[in-house]
Design a protein around this nucleic acid. Structure first.
Lengths: 229, 229
DNA sequence: CCAAAAGTGTTCACGGTACACCCATGC
DNA sequence: GCATGGGTGTACCGTGAACACTTTTGG
């Protein structure tokens, strides 16, 4: 079966840059291509947009199919429309970036998938198509956005220590932050809820756990509050 | 002649939100649709992406064809992929926003075009498709971006007074700025070149003219300088 | 001489930054 | 008892915000 149109059309795809935080490293989830072009190369998960689904739904579906991931934080990044992005034909791709909690078991499974793997963002293989440029832009966006929107929490477990939170910012921003100033500032925003729990199984004084109060953040930001690291 | 594909494809279009500054008003350029759907409605200029052109080239071409505009500042905004955006079939649209100098003669011509007109951004007719949402997002982006990137100059004549510059920011940000603080801050950035000219034909003390030093801005921002209003 | 906008400095409050030591825990 | 990170306060400085009068020019 074929589909005919009066004018030629570009193919439309979505591609996802999935970020995860592994200790002190920011990682990106890549899949290994089975088919040409670029068979064997690493590439971003993604695929063709179906007629019945929105772009975001397409991105979610491809992530699920190719990496097993569900319920990730997803945000549109940019649409790449270079004429020669794909050697076969004209393909326009709407790129998304996603933030996932590597503490989730669902992600652990994907990590073991034979054709999907996490790579240190500073040590990526060269990627198929223009996917290097897409990753670069995603990283740039993440670095910018994490400072004035509380999206970084999407990379952490629901309960975290202040040190983990600080390490997350240091990793993404690629610069050290002062411990006392960081705690003063983040606690002054009054968006963290101090839990009655501490870290377990650490070989030193156990740190207090906190969670991010999303509900309160929503209320405050509607009232004009500006998150800022 | 028809074009056939093994899988169905969404149509791909570009739409442009063109902003211009007319004294104290921020305006948007709209065109009146000749054909159904929404014949007679006002809509954003835009149209189908051809295979041989990039998305940005498509946006430029449509602007030229429908409004006569050339050499505008153009930036990708967002890609709208709702399933029912267009009643005829699935259409995905890459939206751009543009900033133009209403002082340009080329723009004056477009203003007179029988089916293109400038509207006060706070008094728009209801628009075809989801174009209201596109304008809303463009406005939101403009308000955010103008504060930390010197794109506002794209709305002014090449030579401008400090009062005109301040009015531009007040119009976009929709809040008054303090004259002395504004001048102190903008001059401290040292990105304006004081010209040996003053305003002409005004019924009061003539103001000094300045121009924006793009070259210097480029150099400084590569060195990490942050523009900020 | 009057109307209209141009042009110009100082003070204060607040937030960012720099900086070092004691504490709790597990081994 | 020692190694490891957890947890805490103060002083200084620079930037943002508030604020009012004199000057220039054309009509």
């Amino acid at each position: 079966m074929t589909f005919s149109y009066r004018h030629p059309r570009p193919a439309l795809t979505v591609d996802c840059v999935v970020f995860g935080l592994d200790g002190q490293e920011l990682r990106v989830l890549l899949i290994q291509r089975n088919d040409d072009p670029h068979a064997g190369s690493w590439a971003l998960p993604g695929g063709f947009v179906e007629l019945h689904e929105t772009l975001e739904q397409a991105a979610m579906r491809e992530l699920q199919e190719e990496t097993g991931l569900t319920r990730v934080y997803l945000e549109q990044l940019y649409t790449f429309g270079g004429v020669d992005r794909d050697p076969r034909e004209r393909v326009v791709s709407v790129a998304y970036y996603a933030l996932v909690k590597l503490s989730d078991h669902s992600v652990q499974a994907a990590t073991d998938a034979r054709d999907a793997a996490w790579f240190d963002v500073n040590d990526l293989p060269s990627l198929a198509f223009d996917h290097d440029a897409i990753v670069d832009m995603a990283l740039y966006r993440l670095k910018g956005k994490v400072r004035y929107q509380p999206i970084g929490f999407e990379l952490l477990a629901p309960r975290f220590t202040l040190s983990q939170l600080q390490r997350m910012y240091e990793t993404i921003l690629e610069r050290p932050l002062d411990k006392r100033n960081f705690r003063k500032k983040i606690l002054a925003m009054d968006l963290l809820v101090e839990l009655d729990e501490v870290e377990q199984d650490v070989a030193h004084r156990a740190a207090r756990l906190y969670r991010f109060d999303e509900e309160k953040y929503r209320r405050l930001s509607e009232a004009g509050f500006d998150f800022q690291i």
